[in-house]
């Protein structure tokens, strides 16, 4: 049973940590955006787009958690009994997106918040503001990739 508990710990970490990061990042952008929208309510749509960017890490985390749940049969079947080694392996596989997701969402939130400042003055440069934030997200995508490949690579 220990193996399954470790695997579930992996699920929890993968969902919780990037979720915290995204909540922080999205909140940060929301604060800047609210300031800009006070001056110009018509910028709501543009700022909302920027605010959505640091939210993807939380989704990546949920995604990873979901794949693990499918693999170990928590949803859609009987739960597979896992050895402690298998459980540890799944826990390890969850770590890349858990850790990178947490931090990258925070930093991406900061970049996107600065982008809100950019479009406050130059609304036509929304594309550039988005790209700056997306540069940060790259690393979350890579971590997600590593986690997914690890999970798919493990034989249950």
């Amino acid at each position: 049973m220990t193996g399954s508990v470790l695997a579930l710990l992996g699920v929890a970490l993968a969902v919780v940590l990037p979720g915290i990061g995204s909540a922080f990042g999205v909140g940060l952008v929301g604060q800047s955006a609210a300031g800009v929208v006070t001056e110009d309510p018509d910028k709501f749509g543009q700022t909302l787009l920027l605010q959505a960017l640091p939210g993807t890490q939380g989704i990546y985390g949920l995604l990873t958690g979901f794949i693990i749940m499918l693999q170990i049969g928590v949803i859609g079947g009987e739960m597979v009994p896992l050895t402690p080694e298998q459980g540890q392996a799944i826990l390890m596989a969850a770590l890349p997106i858990a850790i990178v997701g947490l931090l990258s969402a925070i930093y991406q939130g900061q970049a996107a918040a600065a982008g809100v400042g950019l479009i406050a003055k130059r609304p036509e440069e929304l594309g550039k503001a988005i790209i700056y934030a997306v540069m940060v997200e790259t690393y979350a995508v890579l971590a997600l990739l590593a986690s997914i490949m690890l999970i798919f690579g493990l034989q249950m």
């Binding site: 989704i59 949920l62 995604l63 997914i148």
Partner: peptide
């Protein structure tokens, strides 16, 4: 370009979820 794989999987897996 590995992001193509990651995003492709993300769309599919969220939909399945």
């Amino acid at each position: 370009y590995s992001r193509l794989l990651a995003l492709c999987l993300a769309t599919g897996v969220i939909a399945s979820a």
